[in-house]
Amino acid sequence: MDRIDHAASELREMDDLAALSSPIHSLHPLAKLIVTILYIFLTVSFNKYDLSGLIVMLLYPVIAFSVSGIPIRTCFYKLRIVLPLVCAVGLFNPFFDRVPLLYIGNISVSCGVISMITLMLKGVFCLMASFILVATTTMDAICAALRKIHIPNMIVTLLLLTYRYISVMIDEVSIMTTAYKLRAPGQKGIHYSAWGSFLGQLLLRSMDRAEELYSSMQLRGFCGEFQYADVPPAKLIDYLYAVFAVGAFFLCRMVNIASFFGSIALGGSL
């Protein structure tokens, strides 16, 4: 398969993942959305040197992945392009913040190193949690949930249309690269002399298509608001899940569980 076709099918695989069934899949989208938002919020709020406290937050994505039956490696594979960017965020901290924070044997570990690791982990954890949400909930259900918490229609519709437009764009790239390759055999990639017209054509074609798609929506009664799939009312299990997860997150945020257990194990005081 072509690289671009591969990208398209990878994007669509997200829909396939969301169509699987597992206890996490069957949870109410609003419950998942709220839990994810709170998780991200609390994870990000950890102090930049609080590595031991942050580590515990890994539990949620790990448990969620194993219960949903989606391998963690799928997440890392699909996010392979964003992950390095997220990890690069704190890369310069060790150079700016050289005050030693702790010693491992004779080696001093500076504040910068700890804050770099903390930042990276925060990014990775948040990505994992978002991935779990997107991989176990259809885009429609997420949008419906967003509308339920009164996110303006404009923003939600924009989100959904952008998501759909990406597939249209990838489709067009795929058609154009195939057509190009078939008439330029033996050539690797697209010759730089054709880049300009290729990009221009891509933009025009995908815009034309988007416009026609939009007409087709209007002709079928679309007036700016999608009729999202009915989200069934939340069940007891959804409430329990949300309350339990949010409670656990707060507990992890307020109490440094790792050092709590550490001090118990070492017999020391808190």
Partner: peptide, 25 residues
């Protein structure tokens, strides 16, 4: 209106959702 190019007519993820789009609207 049935468009000349069906690729530009269908925009929902599945056939079912696409057919249901107009009645719901």
């Amino acid at each position: 209106f049935v468009l000349q190019n069906s690729d530009n007519q269908m925009f929902m993820p599945t056939v079912y959702e696409d057919v249901m789009f107009a009645p719901l609207n």
